[in-house]
Amino acid sequence: MQILVNGEPLATDARNLAELCASLGFIHAKVATALNGHFVVSAERGLTPLAPKDEVEILAPRQGG
């Protein structure tokens, strides 16, 4: 199915958010996630199914003022 990850289209077979993070190499990475504008805690990524056209945000620490 086709979804948006960080604003870019991605074809994925991931059934849930945890599988998506794993497929992108983020299993042990310091990231936080949101689905369709709502925060998803890390413990619930495996319980959060993905559907076509979903919009996923995967954020990490960055420089800030």
Binding site: N6, G7, L24, G25, F26, A29, K30, V31, A32, E57, I58, L59, A60, P61, R62, Q63, G64, G65
Partner: peptide
């Protein structure tokens, strides 16, 4: 102060920055 930004699966810039902090 720090921020959060989209993490690229390829660049992984945030991971290195966090180590520095």
């Amino acid at each position: 102060t720090v921020s959060l930004r989209r993490e690229s699966a390829r660049m992984r810039a945030g991971q290195g920055f966090w180590e520095l902090i």
